[in-house]
Design a protein around this nucleic acid. Structure first.
Lengths: 243, 243
DNA sequence: CTTGACCCTTACCTTGCGTCATAGCTTATT
DNA sequence: AATAAGCTATGACGCAAGGTAAGGGTCAAG
């Protein structure tokens, strides 16, 4: 009748949030106009996302600082909104990665590289970001073998350093410094066109979580490291490019 | 060790989401590298807001359309985000109303009005939007007594009509048409300066919920009507001014 | 008087674990 | 080796806000 179920009224009665003004001899709950007002207030605050216990405080304690409570709640809501926003961009990245992974097979990446080198790369199974590569392939082809080796070793060292930091806070300066180097390596390997770099890098972070092969360390998969990297990378992009 | 509690692993085991690869003779749960990967994937999707049952579907059914699931989830998140946004503006309104209500006493409103008229108004106890009025007072003073009476009667009729519609959907054309008239009446009574009208009108809707006196019909408080009006008014402002 | 539409109470189910309680296992120290 | 500290395991209960029966009384209409 008033938009709430009988069960809800039972519940409110049970927890003492809203008690009927009278009970008929048969035990029926009867609510007066004051009860109706209180119910509407309850529903109002409930819509705002307050918990019933909080509502009870608000309504029963006249000394309660309602304005402050509302402001605190607004802050909670704003945090939740931010969280949802980042989740949505993460989902976007994940979706585009899944699509691209379907379209480009790993083999495509090595096509055009000297067989020997491709074989080494594949065996080491450490710097595997072949997916989505379109520009990277060309860039690699332009490099001399020595340049490539140096880059590869530096990259390897960087990854290992990050692995050793994986128990730290992903937002710490230590980690973020190393992540910046990681970003630069990835860009050189990956050769992403300007503009989509931030997006691509974040997406790579998501891939780390999706596929264990990306975060093997010394040949041993380490998925927790993947999640650590993903968070650190997202944070880096956030700070560096502002989303 | 991996960022999850033992209890969580028990739980995942219990619901069949993540089972240990082996059990020691003592019954200890041992997870292999595959288990670790699966755990990370679980945590990843959990962060995105998926329910555990959904995660199980995603991970266990290779035929599962992950992209579609992600897109659906993104939509859910966007809806939630919208909801939070409107909640936040509602809170803002409520806060400013509470503040203003504290600052301006009802008596202030009638100050300067002919005593007789103020008395009538107070007694009828029906069109009570004296709060926050700064401009309204002046406007009322400019009107002749007859004009005022006509306005008052029309307003009263409008409110009664809305009360009779309070069981309908607040977004229906019927209701919204009457709400538009209500809006016009309020603006004439209230005399809000241009620019803040939409905000003020929404805020008035919130006040309806806060104080039963605002939605008395024939002298009888009707708080459910208050909530109805509030929603209808918010919707009106949304459609008319786009927030 | 019976039927259907309400209401009552009691109590279990949901989600994702936290938090005991009780007991067995492993490891470190004595 | 014995003992204590510090794991783990298995129930089982609790929280939030009610949904969903189960079993039974009540009320107005026919």
């Amino acid at each position: 009748m008033a938009g709430v179920s009988v069960r809800t009224l039972h519940h409110y009665d049970h927890i003492g949030l809203l008690k009927p003004s009278v009970r008929t001899t048969a035990g029926y709950r009867m609510y007066g106009k004051d009860g109706l007002l209180r119910l509407q207030q309850i529903l109002f605050y409930k819509e705002l996302g307050f918990k019933l216990s909080e509502i009870r405080e608000v309504l029963d304690d006249p000394e309660f600082d309602l304005v402050q409570a509302l402001q605190m709640h607004k802050y909670r809501l704003s945090e939740e909104k931010k969280r949802i926003s980042t989740l949505m961009t993460t989902i976007n990245q994940t979706i585009s990665n899944l699509k691209n992974r379907k379209m480009i097979k790993p083999e495509d990446l090595y096509r055009g590289l000297p067989k020997e080198q491709a074989e080494t790369w594949r065996k080491e199974a450490r710097e595997k970001w072949p997916n989505q590569v379109k520009h990277g392939e060309e860039q690699l082809l332009k490099m001399s073998r020595d340049d490539f080796k140096a880059l590869q070793d530096g990259f390897k060292a960087n990854i290992e350093k990050l692995a050793s930091l994986s128990s730290k806070d992903h937002t710490s300066a230590e980690v973020q410094t190393e992540i910046r180097r990681h970003y630069e390596y990835v860009m050189r390997f990956w050769g992403n066109p300007e503009g989509s770099r931030a997006e691509g890098y974040k997406g790579l972070g998501d891939l780390y979580v999706q596929d264990e092969r990306y975060t093997e360390v010394e040949g041993v998969p380490n998925p927790a490291f993947g999640r650590f990297l993903q968070k650190a990378m997202h944070y880096f992009v956030q700070m560096e490019f502002g989303r």
